[in-house]
Structure formats: structure tokens, C-alpha cells
Design a binder for these strands. Structure first.
Length: 521
DNA sequence: CTAAGAGTTATCTTT
DNA sequence: AAAGATCCACTCTTAG
């Protein structure tokens, strides 16, 4: 079989990478020893207490009490109807507040929460986390509807590392990653790269205390930036079905986060409409796809299925259709004008975890699946079944993501088999496996390596609360970003599509960190 | 072939 | 400070 030889070479590579990995571990251990990490770990308790105090916003402790006594809860619909939203003095009063779940015990039901097969008003879905929701709700609506209407498109940094490999020389110490606190020596790490290629030096990414926020209360499954430079807004979806917004850098401590619960099960995908930023698509394990329309203040129901929807993707410049996966390997195309699914294929033998498109050639799509493969598809030829794929990448375990690089010239996959797969070459004929511990277990959303703003670096979380930066040219972990502000494992990431050097990482506790490049102060 | 169960992992809340 | 709850991820094992 052809797969036998492929497996053999993969095994050879594995040992090669394993060897290098062990060398790296040894080096790191020596370095950590020299930096006196071990003794610092001993008094972790003291520092972690201090750090968590810093990481969480100090004022957030008295807010939301989302605990539930009864797991099955129906959200009381239309309670807000007819209530004037001005009365702010009536904090916590169920009778007067238009957002009565501020102090009630119902808002976040756990499992088996029934889904509603129809539109949900935004006010009904609003999770009042602050007791002052009426004012913040209005602020939110004004913020999202207040875009100028001009949509900027991705400037598309088309710059590949192919052909520049020769420039990468032997290991040299390039620099050290920065940290915010002088007393935290442990976040410094040696970086080896002859020179920094590409449009951004990842070492310039800086995490500031004001850029750490808790958005949702559950495990974050999806995170996205709004494609606009007017305001920096991050939207997240979590395991409880919540969709949260963070208006970065504006408003006071509490007002910049708004939280809704349009779904009864985990939110699997988010897509902000490229030409209409007040419309946001969300998909969920509850089988629903909703369109949040902030102008109309409603979560419309677009699609419903008995199967879970596991991923959602929209081509960058196409607002007339979107692609989503459901059930065991099915992929659908939704036609906005027809208002129905216009094509449906069974592409994999198990759930499809990610969908992505080649930004330079829109006929090429890549999917990743729990069946252990990632496939590149030529949409002009796609019928059904993996045997018809343009290219299939085989992993030994479930594959959680597969993304085209910004130039479209590479594909990076992330698998539970502890590898990041890198596909290069004019016809994606070269496959490399880069070792990375992706064993996240049950409580952490699976890691997914995402591309930065060029073809040189990938970003992915690690189990030690750092952000590994993978060099595509060197095919290794070139550096790791650390910060004492990170109090949980960042597992899902997004880049700002229009601002080079703006990176968001989200955790299982609902927190989001935003790194920003540049201006060292 | 399918179902059920154990083990794995980290974070937040409660005691 | 330590224990308890989480509970649709995935893999492997065992029972039918």
C-alpha cells in the first residue's frame, strides 16, 4: 500500500523530531535551571494568588452569579417587553429592570436546555452581568450599529517563505521575549532564528493588563475579530451557547463587555458579515445557525438541523453564501438568496472540525476531521467522499484544524496525534510534521495552529500557558510568548485581519488575552 | 459492530 | 488551602 511507505517515512520523521524535541527540552531545562525556575515554582502559590488578582478585573468578583440549582430551565421569553430601559436606579429588581436575570438564578442553564426554533430578541438573549445592563445594552447596540459602513478588505500579505529557506542559517540567539514584570524572570526564553522573516516580529507582541478580559463564563470555542479598524471588537462563543463581545480599549471596566445567549449548546462558529458588520452568523452544537442582526436587535434563525453544526466558514469576500459542517462528515453550502442549502456532500467519516478557503484561489477549500484526515478540495470537482479530494493529509488521530496560509501556498493542520502538519509545494506535495503537544484532554478546547499575517509563523497555545510560535520555514517551535498575566491555557486564537500584530487568545475559563505589537515603552 | 466505561486533562467554585 | 464539580473530547478496552 502507498500508505505503508507514508507511515514509514512519517515514523522516521517522528524519531527525527522526537530527537530534536528532546534536545530542546534538555536545553530548556538547563536554561530554566539557570534562571532559578524550580525554586520559583515552589512559591507558586503566593505568586499565583497575586497574578490571578491581576489577571481578573478586580471589580468583577461581585458580579454574575450564574449557578443553577435546576438544570432544566426555560428562559422566560419576552419579559423585557414593554419595559423602559432607562431605570437604572432599580438595580436587581425583577419587576422594574428590563433585564431581570441580573440577580435571578436562572440565566445559565447547563445541559438539556431547550432550543428555540425561531428568532430570539437580543434583549431576551442578553446576559446581564453587571446589574446595569440597560445602559450597557444600549451602548452595545450603538457601538455595533455605529460603524461607518465602509468595509475594508484584507490587504493580503502575499509573501511566502518558499525560496527563502536558504536564508535560514544556524541557530543564533536572536533575543528574548518580553514580559511586563521585572520580577518574573521565568517568562524570558531564548529564541533561535537567524533573522525574523515576514511582516511581523512575534517577539514584539506585548500583553498589557488592560488587554485581559473575561468575556463569557464557559469554555471558549470560537473567537474572532471584527474585520474593521474603526473599532477593535472581539467576539467569542462558548460552550454554554453564549456569544460575547469585547469592545477593546473603550468604555469603562464593565461596559466594554456584552454577553448574549442565543444558543442552548456550544457555539462552534462565528462569522461577522464582511460587508455588514452589524450582522453576525453563529453556529452551534444545538443544530442551529443564527444571524445576529444588531440593527433589528434580534437573533434570526437561519438554519436548523437535528445534527450538531460543528464548523462554519465564509469566504472572505462573499456574503451571499456560507459553508458549514454537521453530523458525521457532512458539509453544506447555504445560499443566502435562495434561503436554503444549495449543495450538500458527505466529505468525511466523522465530524468536520474546521473549514477554510484559499484566499488566492477560491475554488480550493480545506477541511479537517475527527476521522484523522484533512482534505483539500477543488470545489469545481467535489462530489462526495475522501477519494475525490484534491489532496488528503493523514494523521494518526483526530485533526482539529486545517488552514491555508495567507498566500494560499501552504496548509497547516493540527492533530491530536501531537503534530502540526505543514503542506507546501506548488501542488501541496510536500508534507512535514512538526511535533507539538496537542493533548489538551477534556477540559481545554483542542489546540488549533493559526497563521499569522504572513506565511512565516503560526500561533498555537501550549499546556504551560504559553503561546508557541511555529516557524514554517524552520519547521519547529521558534519561540514562545509568556506572560504572568496569563492565568489559564489559551487554546483558541484569532488574528485581527486588518491590523498586523493584533492577536487574541481565549481560554477555557472565558478569558481573552489580546497581544499588540510594537511601541515598546 | 455498538455501547458502555475508564482514564486523561485544567479551571472555577465552594468549603 | 483543599476538595468538589465539570460531563457531547477522544482513545482505548471490554462486554454484548
Amino acid at each position: 500500500m502507498a500508505t505503508a511507505t507514508a507511515t514509514a517515512t512519517a515514523t522516521e520523521r517522528m524519531t527525527e523530531y522526537e530527537r530534536r524535541r528532546l534536545e530542546n527540552i534538555k536545553r530548556n531545562d538547563e536554561m530554566m535551571a539557570s534562571l532559578n525556575i524550580r525554586s520559583r515554582l515552589a512559591d507558586l502559590s503566593a505568586s499565583s494568588k497575586r497574578l490571578s488578582g491581576k489577571a481578573k478585573s478586580p471589580k468583577t468578583s461581585p458580579k454574575k452569579k450564574p449557578k443553577v440549582e435546576t438544570p432544566v430551565v426555560v428562559r422566560r421569553s419576552l419579559r423585557a417587553r414593554g419595559m423602559p430601559p432607562e431605570t437604572e436606579g432599580s438595580k436587581g429588581s425583577d419587576l422594574e429592570s428590563p433585564f431581570p436575570n441580573a440577580d435571578s438564578k436562572i440565566p445559565i442553564s447547563r445541559k438539556h436546555s431547550p432550543r428555540k426554533l425561531g428568532p430570539i430578541s437580543m434583549k431576551d438573549a442578553y446576559e446581564d452581568t453587571t446589574l446595569y445592563g440597560s445602559t450597557f445594552y444600549k451602548t452595545f447596540v450603538e457601538t455595533i450599529t455605529g460603524f461607518s459602513g465602509v468595509t475594508q478588505l484584507n490587504p493580503c500579505i502575499v509573501d511566502t517563505f518558499e525560496g527563502k529557506k536558504e536564508e535560514v542559517g544556524d541557530d543564533k540567539v536572536l533575543g528574548y521575549s518580553n514580559c511586563n514584570f521585572d520580577d518574573q524572570v521565568c517568562c524570558k526564553k531564548e529564541v533561535k532564528e537567524e533573522k525574523v522573516l515576514g511582516s511581523l516580529d512575534p517577539l514584539s507582541l506585548d500583553l498589557k493588563p488592560e488587554n485581559v478580559v473575561r468575556i463569557t463564563s464557559g469554555r471558549i470555542m470560537a473567537v474572532k475579530f471584527f474585520p474593521s479598524t474603526e473599532k477593535n471588537i472581539i467576539v467569542t462563543g462558548d460552550k454554554l451557547g453564549q456569544v460575547g463581545f469585547w469592545n477593546v480599549g473603550s468604555g469603562d471596566e464593565e461596559g466594554r463587555v456584552s454577553l448574549f445567549r442565543p444558543h442552548s449548546s456550544p457555539v462552534s462558529g462565528i462569522s461577522v458579515q464582511p460587508f455588514c458588520l452589524s450582522k453576525i452568523l453563529t453556529s452551534s452544537y444545538d443544530g442551529l445557525i443564527r444571524l445576529m442582526d444588531v440593527e433589528k436587535e434580534v437573533f434570526e434563525l437561519v438554519y436548523s438541523s437535528d445534527d450538531a453544526v460543528f464548523s462554519l466558514c465564509q469566504q472572505e469576500k462573499d456574503s451571499k453564501s456560507f459553508y458549514f459542517s454537521e453530523g458525521h462528515g457532512k458539509l453544506n453550502i447555504w445560499d443566502e438568496r435562495a434561503g436554503k442549502v444549495s449543495a450538500s456532500w458527505v466529505l468525511h467519516e466523522d465530524r468536520i472540525n474546521s473549514i477554510d478557503f484559499n484566499s488566492q484561489n477560491r475554488n480550493f477549500m480545506v477541511t479537517s476531521s475527527t476521522d484523522g484526515t484533512a482534505c483539500i478540495w477543488d470545489l469545481r470537482k467535489t462530489t462526495t467522499g475522501k477519494q475525490n479530494s484534491f489532496k488528503t493529509i493523514e494523521h494518526k488521530r483526530a485533526v482539529h484544524s486545517a488552514y491555508f496560509s495567507p498566500s494560499g501556498g501552504c496548509v497547516a493542520t493540527t492533530s491530536f496525534d501531537n503534530n502540526i502538519g505543514l503542506l507546501t509545494g506548488t501542488n501541496y506535495e510536500n508534507l512535514s510534521m512538526i511535533y507539538h503537544n496537542n493533548h489538551t484532554g477534556r477540559w481545554i478546547s483542542s489546540f488549533r495552529a493559526i497563521w499569522g499575517w504572513d506565511d512565516f509563523f503560526l500561533f498555537i497555545g501550549n499546556m504551560k500557558r504559553g503561546v508557541d510560535v511555529i516557524s514554517a520555514a524552520r519547521r519547529n517551535t521558534a519561540m514562545t510568548l509568556w506572560s504572568p498575566l496569563i492565568s489559564a491555557i489559551p487554546c483558541r486564537f484569532a488574528i485581527h485581519p486588518l491590523r498586523v500584530g493584533m492577536l487574541a487568545g481565549a481560554t477555557s475559563g472565558g478569558q481573552v488575552y489580546m497581544w499588540v505589537a510594537g511601541d515598546e515603552k
